[in-house]
Nucleic acid binder design. Structure first.
Length: 529
DNA sequence: ACGGGTTAGACC
DNA sequence: TGGTCTAAC
């Protein structure tokens, strides 16, 4: 609300990171002991490895054969896949059946499970903090500078924190950061008690340092990077460990300088940075290697774009491509429908990406089409876009559909201002004309005022015509609500003592120093489902 | 063995 | 604005 937090000189930032997130989601969902090795499989590879499996030397990027060699007892859970089964969209291809059901050549991966788990977690986060930024499906930055009122007993939580090596727990550490540690522990504990997911956290004055902290002690622990420990930390820290220097930019710097650690890079002057990276990024990097980062935590818990993609074996016919586009369109529409029910918004932009073998990938975009049968509309538009794209060629091996530029359609759904805003940027399609360079959009109605307004009220929520829904208003919203309710009632049944806070503080008073790890690794009889 | 599906942001 | 490229998970 106010800008105080982001402009304050001494901020308190938490970076929160769920441990091997996909693996945890599956292990909780299937009721598998987190102490037994588990990997999440995607086709022939694994994309998430739990800590027990890491103990066997298994890493992401291993193939399933290798995983089985390294640990024959490792549980492999395939990600959810979606596809068509004779004309019908097959929503959930249940994972723990045979590998055979995951037909790479007919289905695509769906990350829905993890997105759902993620959004439930973010609801908890936002119940604790106003300024919460979704950094990825399993990571968040929290600016708690303004939320640091906490009574003395609760502050005892900060003893859960690992302090950065060389740092000391002493009076030098700003009180605010210590309370931040207590806050982080409290939040992590809430996530654990509600979902049984463990997480790691870093607590520091800025995002850069907080992110470094969260990765220092994993899993299920948290780390404070105190201001006075920063010089020691940066002394031995490889340059490439700094956020955004992990890729080509980091390599470029290594090539052009002798610096390999952040400390070494501190001897590079602003002028020299100008030469190396250009004026725009010079000052930013100059600060970065000193552990200085002014970037604010932007309050945003939902994504700015939604994408569905598929890589497939080289395809050379329009019919073959259309099959994939249809599947992508279907998945996209499902997610959009849910998104709209939850976030009261809809996209203004539709993009198709395509990669032909041996060529760099390209993309084309159009205003998001308006109309009833969205799956059909998206499919038609995407096909047309491909057919008219000058640089499209067979064989094609990858396609994606994505949407972006969301506009809110909340309270003022009926207002003219919304109507004008949502419709703007679409007017080029009022006169679909092949002669104009701007690609036209198939299916835009003759744009009568009535039609557009009716689309606004119940329109975007409409399901696809082949899955008809009652004409009643906001059916999707009601459905989403109900699903949400069911989720929550499930959670309520497995609820873990709401007053654990008090219980643990009492224990502490008794002089039994407990660590969060104790809570995060419940004994087996404490576990449920 | 940089897999495959997602997201965000910078840049021209 | 549209499109490409980079970085990250």
């Amino acid at each position: 609300m106010s800008d105080f937090a982001s402009s304050a000189l001494n901020r308190v930032i938490i970076h929160l990171d769920l441990d091997c997130f996909y693996a945890q989601v599956e292990s909780v969902r299937l009721g598998i002991d987190p102490a037994s090795p588990l990997c999440v499989q995607q086709w022939d590879g694994v994309i998430a490895v739990n800590y027990a499996a890491r103990g066997y030397g298994i890493s992401r990027h291993d193939r399933v054969d290798t995983v089985k060699e390294k640990c024959p007892s490792c549980v492999l859970v395939h990600v959810e896949t979606v596809g068509f089964q004779d004309q019908h969209f097959q929503e959930k291809d249940n994972s723990n059946v045979t590998e055979h059901s995951h037909r790479k050549s007919e289905t695509k991966v769906s990350l829905d499970r993890y997105r759902d788990a993620s959004s439930r977690i973010f609801k908890v986060l936002s119940s604790f903090v106003d300024r919460c930024e979704k950094a990825s499906i399993d990571e968040a930055y929290l600016d708690v500078s303004e939320e640091l009122k906490m009574d003395t007993e609760e502050r005892a939580y900060y003893f859960e924190t690992k302090f950065q090596p060389f740092g000391e727990v002493n009076a030098q550490i700003p009180e605010s950061l210590l309370i931040g540690c207590a806050f982080a522990a409290k939040i992590r504990y809430a996530i654990y008690s509600q979902f049984h997911y463990t997480s790691s956290a870093g607590i520091a004055e800025n995002k850069l340092l907080a992110k470094l902290g969260s990765s220092m002690h994993k899993p299920s622990q948290q780390t404070l990077i105190s201001p006075q420990s920063v010089p020691y930390l940066l002394e031995s820290l490889p340059l490439k460990k700094l956020r955004s220097l992990g890729g080509k930019l980091g390599t470029l710097i290594e090539e052009k300088t002798n610096a390999r650690t952040a400390k070494e890079a501190q001897s590079i002057t602003l002028e020299e940075w100008n030469e190396i990276v250009g004026r725009d990024t010079a000052e930013w990097i100059y600060n970065l290697v000193r552990g200085i980062d002014y970037s604010p935590v932007n309050a945003r818990e939902i994504t700015k774009s939604i994408l569905a993609a598929k890589t497939f074996k080289a395809e050379s016919s329009w019919e073959g491509l259309e099959k994939w586009i249809k599947l992508l369109a279907y998945e996209l529409c499902e997610r959009l429908s849910k998104d709209q029910a939850m976030n009261s918004r809809r996209p203004a932009n539709l993009v198709i990406h395509y990669s032909s073998v041996g060529h760099p990938s390209c993309s084309k975009s159009i205003p998001f089409p308006c109309g009833k049968d969205k799956v059909h509309l998206l499919t038609q538009n995407a096909m047309k876009l491909l057919k008219t794209a000058k640089n499209f060629r067979f064989p094609c091996s990858r396609l994606s559909l994505s949407v972006s530029r969301f506009h809110s359609i909340t309270s003022e759904a009926n207002s003219i201002s919304t109507f004008l805003r949502v419709d703007e940027g679409r007017h080029t399609n009022d006169v679909p004309s092949e002669s104009i360079q701007v690609p036209s959009v198939i299916g835009l109605p003759e744009n009568s005022l009535e039609k557009s307004i009716s689309n606004m009220n119940d329109g975007p929520l409409e399901k696809y015509s082949d899955i008809k829904s009652e004409p009643g208003e906001n059916e999707d919203y009601i459905l989403a609500k109900r699903l949400q309710e069911e989720e929550w009632s499930k959670l309520r049944n497995t609820k873990i003592h709401a007053n654990d806070d008090e219980r643990r503080i009492k224990r502490k008073k008794k002089g039994q120093l407990q660590t969060l790890d104790h809570f995060f690794r419940p004994s087996s009889e404490e576990k449920r489902s």
